[in-house]
């Protein structure tokens, strides 16, 4: 409840953390999918390059979370006071 004045929660915003980690995973997987897809690995997934597709999907999700956090930052409210604090 250390809320004094209007301030945003900044990087502690969970959306930045989720977006960052999932986005980073997306980069790694996309990279693997493009440069490291051997026939043997592809055969496992029956020809589906899952690293590439999952990587692209995660990139999109990661960017979406970052954009959401950037466009609608969380403001720590002044009245985040609880009436029943012990």
């Amino acid at each position: 409840m250390a809320a004094n004045g209007k301030r945003t929660v900044g990087l502690f915003d969970i959306r930045f953390i989720i977006g960052g980690l999932i986005g980073l995973y997306g980069v790694i997987l996309t990279f693997l999918g493009v440069f490291n897809a051997s026939d043997k690995e592809l055969a496992k997934g029956d020809g589906l390059n899952i690293n590439l597709w999952a990587g692209l999907g995660m990139l999109v999700v990661g960017v979406a979370f970052m954009a959401w956090a950037r466009l609608r930052p969380v403001i720590v409210p002044d009245d985040a006071e609880s009436t029943d604090a012990p």
Binding site: I17, I18, L21, I22, G45, D46, W53, A54, G57
Partner: peptide, 24 residues
């Protein structure tokens, strides 16, 4: 906060697995 993060990591793990399995 970790649980929320975990939710997305769990989905990121299971959804592609389901897709490959369905494909197969």
């Amino acid at each position: 906060y970790n649980e929320v993060l975990q939710f997305f990591v769990i989905v990121a793990a299971l959804l592609p697995l389901t897709i490959v399995a369905l494909h197969k």
